[in-house]
C-alpha cells in the first residue's frame, strides 16, 4: 500500500487514454451523428473538451458540448458540511432525441451520475445516454456502470484518486494518494 502519492497516469498516458476513449465513443455511436458531450463541473468539463478535440480531429467536425453542475440535484445537500458552491449549468443545444455522453473525471459511488441523469431529464429526453469516465475507481453505491472507461484503478482503503488537468491544475496527471488524516 503506497504511503506516498503514486502517478497512475502521466500526461502522455492521459493523452493516449483520451484518444482511445474518443475512438470508443465514435465506435459506440457509429460516428458523430446526434452526439453531444456533456461534462460534469468542473473536471468532467475539461475531459469533455479533450474528447471533443480528438473527435473533431478524427471526424473533421465539431461535436456540440455542454456543462452540468449537479449541486442542486445532490441527495446529501443538508448533510454535507459547508454548503457547496453552485456552478454553472450550460446546455446550449436541444437534447431531445440526441445521444448524450455524460463525461466525468472519476466514477466512484455513482451518486453524481444519478444526479446528472435527473438534471438531464429536466432538459429533455435524449434517445440514449452514455457515460464516459477517465478513471473508474469502483465503490459503487448505486446500479450505475460506465460505457467508456479510461482506466480502472483499484483504490486501497484510505486512499483517493486525484485527476489533475492543465487548465485548472497546471498539469495533466492522475495520482493515487493517501487521504490526509483530518
Amino acid at each position: 500500500m503506497p504511503a506516498e502519492p503514486t502517478v497512475v497516469l502521466t500526461a502522455r498516458a492521459v493523452e493516449r487514454t483520451v484518444r482511445r476513449m474518443a475512438d470508443e465513443l465514435l465506435e459506440l455511436n457509429d460516428g458523430i451523428e446526434r452526439l453531444i458531450l456533456v461534462g460534469i463541473q468542473r473536471r468532467g468539463v475539461q475531459i469533455a473538451e479533450r474528447l471533443a478535440a480528438v473527435i473533431a480531429e478524427r471526424e473533421g467536425r465539431d461535436v456540440p458540448r455542454g456543462a452540468l453542475d449537479i449541486t442542486l440535484y445532490r441527495d446529501d445537500l443538508q448533510s454535507v458540511g459547508p454548503i457547496p458552491l453552485v456552478g454553472r449549468t450550460d446546455l446550449p443545444v436541444e437534447i431531445d432525441g440526441q445521444v448524450v455522453v455524460i463525461v466525468d473525471d472519476v466514477l466512484f459511488t455513482g451518486r453524481t451520475i444519478r444526479a446528472a441523469l435527473d438534471e438531464l431529464a429536466d432538459f429533455g429526453r435524449p434517445a440514449r445516454i452514455l457515460l464516459a469516465v477517465l478513471v473508474d475507481r469502483g465503490g459503487r453505491e448505486l446500479p450505475i456502470q460506465p460505457d467508456v472507461v479510461g482506466k480502472t484503478v483499484d483504490v486501497p482503503l484510505g486512499h483517493r484518486i486525484d485527476v489533475l488537468v492543465s487548465a485548472l491544475d497546471g498539469r495533466d496527471e492522475v495520482v493515487l494518494a493517501p487521504v490526509k488524516p483530518a
Binding site: 442542486l72 453552485v86 454553472r88 449549468t89 450550460d90 429536466d122 432538459f123
Partner: peptide, 20 residues
Amino acid sequence: LDTAVPLKEISERAIKKVPT
C-alpha cells in the same frame, strides 16, 4: 451573489425547477 449567478439559468429552462 456568486450563488445567484448560476441560479439565473434555471429560470431560462423549459422546466424551471430544481429539486433542491
